[in-house]
Design a protein around this nucleic acid. Structure first.
Lengths: 69, 69
DNA sequence: ATAACAGGTATGATATATCATACCCATTAT
DNA sequence: ATAATGGGTATGATATATCATACCTGTTAT
């Protein structure tokens, strides 16, 4: 799978799980201390996100990193 | 698990799998078009590596991203 | 109608991942 | 002895992830 496809998949998983938990992007941003201007592109798969950032998001959603892959 | 611990774990897995395949850092670098000055800190877990970089390494080692977590 | 909210984009600033080069220290081979 | 090799560090340059602010659009609530 190409990088971009992989990043899009990860982003979709974040977006899906966030919505399942009835969270807005803003609320997720508050939980993991991130800006929505960075979260939205991540959910869209436009950013080559780091492991550290993914871990922050995972903790905010109470999931494991492998749940995003 | 803390970010740093997670990054160290990923790095150890890269290093272990590379050695299992009898590859030097230089050879791995050649395969994934990366510098050893960047690969070594990644194997040490000192760098907050991106998904894109991990995917390059995974392709060079013929493994899946989840194999590193 | 309009105020509040949610997702989304644009942009400039800052932090840092990655590159490129040079160098050090052990170990191994000649 | 020394040349070659492998892991490792230091550093300056470049690319880009992330922050911070401002703004737009559509939807919902009052």
């Amino acid at each position: 799978m190409k990088d971009k496809e992989y990043l899009i998949l990860i982003g979709k998983n974040i977006s899906r799980i966030r919505k399942e938990q009835k969270l807005t992007v803003k609320e997720l941003g508050f939980r993991c201390d991130m800006e929505k201007t960075n979260l939205i592109p991540i959910e869209k798969g436009r950013i080559n996100v780091t492991i550290g950032t993914l871990l922050k998001i995972c903790r905010a959603l109470d999931i494991e990193l492998k749940d995003l892959l």
